[in-house]
Design a protein around this nucleic acid. Structure first.
Lengths: 92, 92
DNA sequence: CAATGTTACGATACACGTAATCATA
DNA sequence: TATGATTACGTGTATCGTAACATTG
């Protein structure tokens, strides 16, 4: 499992649409479809319910989205902290 | 930046040795060397000081290690939470 | 010169995009 | 039947491992 899987999932879960998420991420739908499938395979559960005009989160998906949001935010903040300190170190 | 980079970095930083970390991760040294270089490129700073018989953390590396440890632990716990809840959902 | 990290290089695997297919509202 | 997700398929990129090289204690 890599961050890519979670970033893709978050986009689809927020947009509730593979096509919109694909545009937002600047990738093609199939890339998303595959990444989500991998994620589901790893977790052993479906996270999105696909029904042509509706994409909905499954209960498992709702849980995953919450955790994903927290995790990706953590990543961003951690990287920001690192960069800031590195910046300070370089000025010395 | 993917989790792979951080997992590799953590192993090297903890072992203070590319060769030992490589064994532990079941990959060859060059893979580690490259991943660390990518990480350093992304961050714009060296995180490890290589001197044949000693690998040491740079100040930036020390910061990164702390953040990495927290982050990877967060990932693990988040995944555990998700799996646990998914497990509970499936039993219904 | 011995131990260990890095580069070079060829091979493999993985992710991607395009196009075709399938499914539903 | 029109929209949007998936599968098939070929391609390109990225990662890997082996081997050669460089470096330093």
């Amino acid at each position: 499992m890599e961050l890519r899987h979670l970033r893709y999932f978050q986009a689809v879960a927020e947009e509730l649409s593979f096509s919109r998420a694909a545009k937002r991420l600047h990738v093609a739908q199939p890339a998303l479809s595959r990444a989500i499938k991998q994620l589901e395979h790893v977790l052993g559960a479906e996270v999105l319910e696909r029904t042509r005009h509706h994409v909905r989160l499954t209960p498992a998906g709702a849980v995953l989205l919450r955790e994903t949001a927290g995790l990706l935010q953590y990543v961003e903040e951690a990287m920001r902290r690192v960069r800031r300190i590195i910046g300070a170190l370089c000025e010395k």
